[in-house]
Design a protein around this nucleic acid. Sequence first.
DNA 1: AGACATTTAATTGTCTGACATTTGTAGCAG
DNA 2: CTGCTACAAATGTCAGACAATTAAATGTCT
Lengths: 243, 243
Amino acid sequence: MSKPDLSTEIARTLREDIVAGRLVADDRLPSEADLAEQYGASRATIREALKRLAAQNLIRTQRGAFGGAFVARLDWAEAQAQHATMSTLLISMNEVDFATACHARFALERACAATACQNREAAHLDRMRAELSIQARPGLSDEAFCASDVTFHRAFVDATANPILSYQLAGAIEALQPLMNMITYTARSRDEILRIHGDLLHAVEARDAAAAEAALTRLETYTTGVGEGLILSRHAARSGQSA
Amino acid sequence: MSKPDLSTEIARTLREDIVAGRLVADDRLPSEADLAEQYGASRATIREALKRLAAQNLIRTQRGAFGGAFVARLDWAEAQAQHATMSTLLISMNEVDFATACHARFALERACAATACQNREAAHLDRMRAELSIQARPGLSDEAFCASDVTFHRAFVDATANPILSYQLAGAIEALQPLMNMITYTARSRDEILRIHGDLLHAVEARDAAAAEAALTRLETYTTGVGEGLILSRHAARSGQSA
DNA sequence: AGACATTTAATTGTCTGACATTTGTAGCAG
DNA sequence: CTGCTACAAATGTCAGACAATTAAATGTCT
């Protein structure tokens, strides 16, 4: 067991104080000078520890008189963004194959179906309808179509009115979107997607969970199929080139 | 738009290089001195930037000759732990009520049922059986029971053989466990839990997805019920005291 | 008294230069 | 070939200084 760095240790201590609730949102930490004295470290070391916490969105700092480091009020949106980038990295680094990613994404989204059908309100339906009409616009760029795709699905999971589900799902959907885009740009048929999105909207509107799940399953099947086809043709092209 | 700190900017630049794949796992970053020269900043500032990246598990540093900062190979387990602590904080800070947390947890876990039943192997069943027998031990401490509970459910989601699902779910399960524990310590009947766990195991063994989902739903209903009861009794106690 | 300008003090952000510590590599001795 | 030593390249830490920022206190004018 190698001894960790001092700054790492200090960061760990402070982090535990926050996670355990000994330091609560908007509490002010001692000034860097005070912390330095308290931990018997130099200001530079303390600052490195604080920067670690800041990178994890556990604290925010303010300059000037009566400034300092404050325990951050971590909100859902911020955490979601962080979750999404971490998932993105994870997926790209571990080279998850498309079928696995696709399966996970829709399994998770199906988990929202029943709750979304139960709790959806008019505003959610409106958001979904708005995105649907955007997606139907002729001449829409691929980028815009994909962005609207994400928004549509986020509106769907938000309809669960469960912030935990929203947080988990929206993070996952955003993280997997680059993979999805990759195939959208080349091969996805917008008509088929639009049809399924419409079915999903109507299912949620009718509070028909089974139909919503069925729509998502169809979307999964379709997307997986397109992806597989692409990979096959790419393999064929590659072996053709390398031969 | 206030200008962000230099160290923040440098961290952002390097992070983008990593996320965009311009720097790839195990690549070595320039030394702190080189980076300082390159960015026109002092070593201290560079170090603060690097510490931020280290806190996000994007790089790891090695001391000594030919040491330095290397792009980290982010693995599932590490990310999962980070995901779990972030979720824990989020839940405690936003004071999610028990019913919402419970519903989200089981909705997500049910999302795994079909896949787990399809892909489960003997090893997964063995792990689940082992935990089940631990949970049946008389005189088992509450802490040990809860720990085994977590392990049991993680074995279940691992049976999906889908690392993305495992990552998402295990993070969520661990994050919600403290809330679950809170009620376990006081009121949960182990017999009922054991019975349902047994049913879940048998459903997975028989590859019966519907039965697995049903077991999870029963567990959700039971847990939610116990939680509600506790909250009610607590409210009653509090109003009794404060009156 | 009230509005506005100025000073002040506290605090973070950055720089500089130094030294301590760690660790792979090269060279040397046996 | 093995083991020891010396070296060099990094990161880790420290001390002290100055710059920049900001809220509060103080002063000033009307």
